[in-house]
Structure formats: structure tokens, C-alpha cells
């Protein structure tokens, strides 16, 4: 399988990365090189093989449903580019 410039632009939008026409052209070639490389996986007979979900056979650890942390709103917003009264500020999303 290979991708064209139109698909690359669609994927870039899905990934929320702005691309110029020139970027999209370059990426099309690069992505096709990688997709060409991974194509060989189709030779492998995977009939009856389960897809891997975990490398180590282990049961997911569960925690008690209790509050162990909190009251650190100032820490949480400390690195944000724009905040007000411990809220993250973003451009207007509802009219």
C-alpha cells in the first residue's frame, strides 16, 4: 500500500499537525519508503496467532478506590502557557 499527497494531508489533519504543500510532498515520499519497508510483514503466516497485548504475563494491578492525592491545582497549571485562576485558557470553542 502507498499514500498520495491527499492522504498525507488528511492524516496530518488527523494528527493535528499543520503541513505546507512542500512538507506534504516530502512526507509522501518518506511515508511510502517506510510503508514499503513494513510491507514484508504480509509474508508471515499468522493464521491462529493471537496479537500480543502484553509482553509479560501479568494481571493488571488494581488500586483501592480512595483519594491519595490532590489539592495541587497550582502545581498542575504551573507549566501551562496561559492560565487564569487555576484554569487552562484556550481560544474560544463555543459561540
Amino acid at each position: 500500500m502507498s499514500v498520495d499527497v491527499k492522504t498525507v494531508k488528511r492524516v496530518a489533519h488527523l494528527a493535528r499537525i499543520a503541513v505546507s504543500e512542500e512538507d506534504a510532498q516530502r512526507m509522501t515520499g518518506e511515508l511510502n519508503a517506510i510503508l514499503g519497508f513494513v510491507e514484508q510483514l504480509n509474508e508471515v503466516d499468522v493464521a491462529g496467532v493471537e496479537p500480543m497485548t502484553s509482553v509479560t504475563p501479568m494481571e493488571m494491578k488494581k488500586r483501592q478506590d480512595v483519594v491519595t492525592d490532590g489539592s495541587k491545582a497550582a502545581d498542575i497549571v504551573a507549566n501551562a502557557p496561559a492560565t487564569e485562576e487555576n484554569f487552562f485558557l484556550v481560544p474560544k470553542v463555543v459561540e
Partner: peptide, 26 residues
């Protein structure tokens, strides 16, 4: 990110990601 987004996108998941995870089992 682009490759990852593409292989996980609708219609390609089984052909790429699922196949790769099966190969990983092998």
C-alpha cells in the same frame, strides 16, 4: 506520528497494527 496515525486510522488497523502485533507474538 504520521505513520502511527495512518496505521491506526479507519480501514488500516487490521492490515498494519493487528498484523504487527501477531508477528510480535511469533
Amino acid at each position: 506520528i504520521m505513520i502511527g496515525t495512518y496505521v491506526l486510522s479507519a480501514g488500516y488497523y487490521d492490515a498494519y497494527y493487528l498484523q504487527a502485533q501477531k508477528v510480535r507474538t511469533l
